[in-house]
Computed example of a mutant assay.
Amino acid sequence: MPLDTRPLNSLGLPKPPSETRVVVAMSGGVDSSVVAAMLKEEGYDVVGVTLQLYDHGAALAKKGACCAGIDIHDARRVAESMGFPHYVLDYENIFREAVIDEFADSYLGGATPVPCIRCNERVKFKDLLETAKDLDADCMATGHYIQRKMGESGAELHSAADASRDQSYFLFSTTPEQLDYLRFPLGHLPSKDETRALAAKYGLSVAMKPDSQDICFVPDGNYAAVIEKLRPGAAEPGQIVHVDGRVLGDHEGVIHYTIGQRRGLGIGGLSEPLYVVKLDVEARQVIVGPKEMLATRKVPVREINWLGDEPFTSREEWHLMVKVRSTRPPREAVVRPISETEAEVELVVAEEGVSPGQACVFYAPEGSRIFGGGWIWRGY
């Protein structure tokens, strides 16, 4: 069969924009709204889709939320102003089963989960992506700050041009098949100011809308209150215990603590600063110790999604950069595969507060490419 030699459009497809249907995942924020408006202006056949992920009423009262209440209204207004169809899909049950329930159970298990990654993995880039295909779309575009670049072996995932907006940590589980279909039109922009300038250019009502904050279904960052609502009786009292065995005080539930926490322990009057170094859920104990006990070099990782050109297990070890928390810069590490989906990561320099439930994301030693990552599953 002869190769298609037609010129590629701005989304990398060999057809005119007018013949290219793009489903844009619209959260109601400025980023996805700009993506939809930009593609519409370029002449693409744009279809906006917004997912209602949780209760309207609860979300309306919360500033900085997404995917419910006022945000659905904002997405609809953008679609109307730019003249493209917009649909709202009720994904409340899917979101609860695939994201919220696991978040609650993981937190109760003493982990520090990252539900935004699971939402991208199990809802937006799975069910919504399939919906886009059902709508005969050629691709799906989002407002994420990350880049998709074509390499010798196909589509590659790269960090955003603006490091302060980069969302690669939250998108490491994007599979090669999904990456073939996805597009990220904002990833190359030098700053968020550029995005807002585009929103103003298109006359979008959301041009100065604040960015979403925290986890969308956790009002004011109060994780414990959400867990208690989802799992009544979860906040069972217990003891705060020093690593040497001394009982230092009582607590009102392990769910109120996280690995590495120092403030708010309620055990004042001690000569040394103490940190949460372990959560023993079965014994209902919060175990505290000196800061040096938080440091670890070996990190077990599972559920690995690999985005390298060679098979993950083709080498005994990979010398990469890794992030063990979204707020930290990548650090040098040696990644040793155990299987296609499991590995031991050895950090060249010990990191503090490595916590089960967080992601460990793999980056190229040089350049901006993301090689995937996995989930930290056991503390030390």
Rank of each mutant, 00 (worst) to 15 (best):
R165S: 07
A58Q: 12
L248C: 12
Y202H: 02
I94Q: 06
V361S: 02
A359D: 06
H158K: 04
K229F: 14
Y223M: 15
P356Y: 01
I72W: 07
R96C: 09
T142A: 09
E156T: 13
L11T: 09
C119P: 11
V78G: 08
P300E: 08
H251G: 09
I370R: 03
I287L: 14
Q178M: 05
V23P: 05
V218A: 08
A36M: 04
I304K: 02
E310H: 08
Y87R: 11
A224V: 12
L189A: 10
G203Y: 04
D55T: 03
A364F: 00
D90W: 04
I146H: 07
S153D: 11
D134N: 13
S191C: 03
E282G: 09
P210K: 01
A207L: 00
P176G: 06
E97T: 13
N120H: 14
P115C: 11
D180P: 01
D211S: 08
E130H: 10
G109P: 15
K126I: 01
P337C: 04
R302A: 04
L51D: 00
V123P: 05
E228C: 14
G268T: 14
D136F: 13
Q358I: 00
P237L: 03
W306S: 01
S191N: 10
I72R: 11
D250W: 11
Q52K: 11
G48Y: 01
G308R: 00
L198K: 06
H251F: 07
K149V: 09
P176N: 02
N9A: 07
E351N: 07
K63T: 12
H73V: 14
G238N: 11
L347G: 09
E346W: 06
E236N: 11
V354F: 06
E177V: 07
L279Q: 14
D220K: 10
Q52W: 02
P210M: 01
Y169T: 02
I117G: 04
S106H: 12
G289T: 11
G308H: 03
V226I: 15
V276C: 14
M321Q: 12
L274K: 15
C119L: 10
G57A: 06
L179E: 13
P365G: 02
A37H: 00
D31E: 07
K209A: 02
A364R: 04
V226D: 02
V335S: 09
S159C: 13
R331H: 08
F362V: 01
S106M: 15
P329S: 03
M208H: 04
P185F: 04
S355T: 15
S168T: 13
G43H: 07
E97F: 04
V206K: 00
P210G: 02
P115A: 11
D105E: 15
E80V: 10
R77T: 13
Q147S: 06
G269C: 05
A25P: 11
D193H: 10
R196V: 00
S164R: 10
E342Y: 00
L8F: 09
R183H: 06
L347D: 13
R331W: 07
Y363H: 14
A137N: 06
G12S: 07
T313M: 02
G12I: 09
A235Q: 12
A36R: 01
V34M: 02
D74P: 08
C119N: 09
T131R: 06
M1A: 11
T5Q: 07
A163L: 05
S173E: 08
